[in-house]
Deep mutational scan, measured.
Amino acid sequence: TTYYDVLGVKPNATQEELKKAYRKLALKYHPDKNPNEGEKFKQISQAYEVLSDAKKRELYDKGGE
């Protein structure tokens, strides 16, 4: 599973699309609303952290993490 899959976006997604997808999923899986989905929330946050940063995203796209 790639970070793009976690957020449900395509690899060519814009920053705005990433932000929108992250917010939607973060609300859905937030531990306050969904106590059993803490791990999913962490995955979503990690994916967004990497993909929202241009340098980290470039490194990730080249095969790094």
Rank of each mutant, 00 (worst) to 15 (best):
N34I: 05
Y4G: 01
L51V: 03
G63T: 13
D53A: 04
R23K: 13
D32N: 12
L18K: 00
V50C: 08
T14E: 03
I44P: 00
L51E: 01
D32K: 12
G64H: 14
E49A: 13
R23G: 08
L59Q: 13
Q46I: 14
K62W: 07
K62V: 07
Q43A: 13
Y22V: 02
E39N: 08
V50Y: 05
H30V: 05
V50Q: 04
K56S: 12
F41Y: 08
K20A: 15
E37W: 12
A13D: 03
G64Y: 15
A13C: 14
L59W: 13
A21G: 02
N34Q: 07
E16D: 12
L59V: 10
E39D: 12
A21K: 04
K55V: 15
D5C: 08
Y48F: 10
T2E: 06
D61H: 03
N34K: 06
D61Q: 03
Y29F: 09
D61F: 02
S52V: 07
R57P: 02
A54Y: 10
S45P: 00
Q15V: 12
E49S: 11
A21S: 05
N36V: 10
H30L: 06
Q15I: 10
V50D: 03
D5A: 08
Y48S: 01
V6Y: 06
L59Y: 08
Y4R: 01
P11V: 10
N34E: 07
D32Q: 08
P35A: 10
D61W: 02
K24H: 09
Q43D: 07
Y29D: 02
N12C: 11
V50G: 02
P35M: 06
Y29L: 05
T2M: 06
P31Q: 08
L7G: 00
K10A: 13
K62A: 12
K55A: 13
S45T: 15
K33G: 08
A21R: 05
T14H: 04
D53Y: 02
D5N: 07
K55H: 12
T2K: 05
H30W: 05
K55C: 13
Y4T: 01
Y60Q: 03
L25R: 03
K33D: 07
Y3C: 05
E17S: 05
K28A: 09
Y4N: 01
E17V: 05
Q15T: 10
K33L: 14
I44A: 04
Y48W: 11
L51G: 00
V9G: 00
K33T: 13
A47P: 00
K28T: 08
Q43S: 08
R23L: 15
V9W: 00
P35R: 08
Y48A: 01
V50H: 05
E17M: 08
Q43N: 07
K28R: 11
D53N: 08
S45V: 15
V50M: 05
L18P: 00
K62E: 07
R57H: 03
K62R: 12
D32I: 10
L25C: 05
T1V: 12
D32S: 14
G64F: 15
A21E: 04
D61Y: 02
E37S: 11
Y22H: 03
K28G: 05
Q46C: 10
K42W: 09
K28Q: 15
A21L: 02
L7T: 00
R57Y: 03
N34M: 07
Y48E: 01
K40F: 10
A21Q: 05
Y48L: 03
K33V: 15
D53F: 03
L27E: 15
S45E: 15
D5R: 06
E49R: 11
K33N: 15
E37M: 14
E17G: 04
Q15Y: 13
E16T: 09
A13F: 06
G63R: 10
A26I: 12
L25N: 02
E49F: 11
A54W: 09
N12Q: 08
S45G: 06
N36P: 07
P31S: 07
K20V: 14
K19R: 13
H30R: 10
Y29S: 03
K20E: 15
E65P: 12
K19H: 13
A13S: 06
R57D: 02
G63H: 14
E17L: 05
K28P: 02
G8H: 06
K40Y: 11
K42G: 05
P11A: 10
Y60F: 04
K42Y: 10
E17K: 04
D5I: 06
L59A: 14
S52H: 06
F41C: 04
D32W: 07
K42L: 11
T2P: 04
Q15P: 12
N36Q: 13
K28V: 09
E17D: 12
E58D: 12
F41E: 01
R57M: 03
D61L: 03
G8N: 07
G38P: 11
V50W: 06
G38I: 15
D5Y: 05
P35T: 08
Q46N: 09
T2W: 09
E39S: 08
K56N: 07
S45A: 12
I44W: 02
Q15D: 10
Y3N: 02
K24F: 12
K42C: 11
V6S: 03
Y3V: 02
V50N: 04
V9I: 08
Q43M: 11
K40L: 12
K56F: 07
R23A: 15
R57V: 02
G64W: 15
S45H: 13
L59N: 10
N36M: 12
K20P: 01
T2G: 06
D5S: 08
A26K: 10
K42H: 09
Y4P: 00
N12L: 06
H30C: 09
Q43T: 09
T1F: 14
K19N: 14
D53M: 03
R23V: 13
L51S: 00
G64S: 12
A13G: 02
Y48N: 01
K42M: 09
E16M: 09
K20H: 11
A13M: 02
H30K: 06
L27S: 12
Y60L: 03
G63F: 15
A47M: 04
G64R: 15
Y4H: 02
P31I: 06
D5G: 05
H30D: 11
E16S: 10
D61S: 02
K24I: 13
E39M: 09
P11L: 06
A26H: 08
L18S: 00
E39Q: 09
D53S: 05
Y60D: 03
E49V: 06
K62I: 08
K28H: 08
V6M: 09
E37N: 14
Y4A: 01
T14G: 04
L51Q: 00
D5E: 11
A47V: 04
K33I: 15
Y22W: 08
P35E: 08
A47I: 06
Q15E: 10
D53K: 04
K62Q: 12
Y3I: 04
Y4W: 04
Y3F: 09
Y29R: 02
L25T: 02
P35L: 07
A21D: 00
K62S: 11
E58I: 07
A26W: 15
G63I: 12
L25P: 00
A26G: 04
L27Y: 12
K20F: 11
Y60P: 02
P31Y: 05
V50I: 12
E16Y: 09
E58R: 07
E39R: 07
N12M: 06
D61K: 02
N36W: 11
K55R: 12
K40R: 13
E58V: 05
I44T: 01
Y48R: 01
P11H: 10
S52A: 08
D32T: 12
Y4Q: 01
K19V: 14
T14L: 04
Q46M: 13
K20R: 14
T14V: 03
Q46G: 05
K33F: 14
T1I: 14
E49L: 11
G8D: 05
T1D: 09
E58S: 07
F41M: 06
K10E: 09
F41T: 02
E37R: 06
K10N: 10
D32V: 10
I44R: 01
F41R: 04
P11F: 12
S45N: 12
K56H: 07
R23D: 15
T2C: 15
L7N: 00
L18T: 01
E37P: 05
R57W: 02
K42P: 03
K28Y: 10
E39A: 11
L59G: 06
G8E: 07
N36I: 09
A26T: 10
Q43V: 11
E39I: 09
L7Q: 00
A13Q: 01
A21N: 04
K28N: 06
G8A: 05
L59C: 11
A54P: 15
Y29M: 05
P31L: 06
Y22G: 00
K28E: 09
A54N: 08
G64A: 14
A21Y: 02
N12K: 05
Y29N: 03
N12T: 15
N36E: 13
D32A: 12
A54D: 09
K33Y: 14
E16F: 06
Y48M: 05
Y60M: 03
A47D: 00
T2F: 09
K55S: 11
L27V: 10
Q15L: 14
D61V: 02
I44V: 09
N34A: 11
A47E: 01
T14P: 04
V9E: 02
T14A: 03
S52N: 06
A13H: 02
P31A: 08
Y22D: 00
S45W: 13
Y48G: 01
L25E: 03
R23S: 12
K24A: 13
T1M: 14
H30I: 05
L18W: 01
L59I: 12
D61P: 03
